[in-house]
């Protein structure tokens, strides 16, 4: 069966018909062309598919498209504004926090949720928070540095 869903996607109201077994990540990628959200493991372990639903980070491979009716969904494509990189994106760039880049959108969306809840996380808190995001290239070190650097920048801007 198809389920009709209406939701806010990166700030804009959208509607779509989705199969009842369609995953949120597949709706975002295939129906809306937002391919920044990746499918890595498809078993809710790797975190490449992390998006925000009503402001909270979730694994979009483990949510049905049908469940987001009436919700606000934010993806990596909605993070930067006015052609400027988000402080997390800028920090990942400056600290070489990626190599192949496959995990990066999920890392950044997950870290953005952390910084909303905890604007000045310790190194341990960043590492603990990123438990659900796997990177097979960097060894995490530069990712942690980038998240803490972004926290500093975002703190200075008072955001």
């Amino acid at each position: 069966m198809d389920v009709q869903v209406s939701f806010t996607l990166n700030g804009k109201m959208v509607s779509a018909a989705a199969g009842s077994a369609t995953l949120l990540v597949d709706l975002l990628r295939n129906r809306f062309g937002l391919t920044g959200t990746h499918v890595g493991c498809d078993t809710s372990q790797c975190g490449a598919c992390v998006v925000h639903v009503d402001g909270a980070s979730v694994k979009s491979c483990t949510m049905l498209a049908a469940q987001i009716d009436g919700c606000a969904v934010d993806t990596i494509e909605g993070l930067s504004g006015n052609g400027e990189l988000h402080p997390l994106q800028q920090a990942f760039h400056e600290h070489h926090a990626l190599q192949c880049g496959f995990c990066t959108p999920g890392m950044i969306m997950s870290a953005a949720d952390l910084l909303k809840r905890n604007p000045r996380p310790s190194e341990l808190e960043v590492r603990d928070w990123l438990e659900g995001n796997m990177c097979r290239c960097t060894g995490y070190h530069n990712i942690v540095k980038a998240v803490r650097a972004a926290a500093g920048v975002m703190g200075e801007e008072g955001s």
Binding site: S44, V50, V58, M63, G132
Partner: peptide
Amino acid sequence: GDPQVRNR
């Protein structure tokens, strides 16, 4: 689990 699992 992890933060995303705890959110859902």
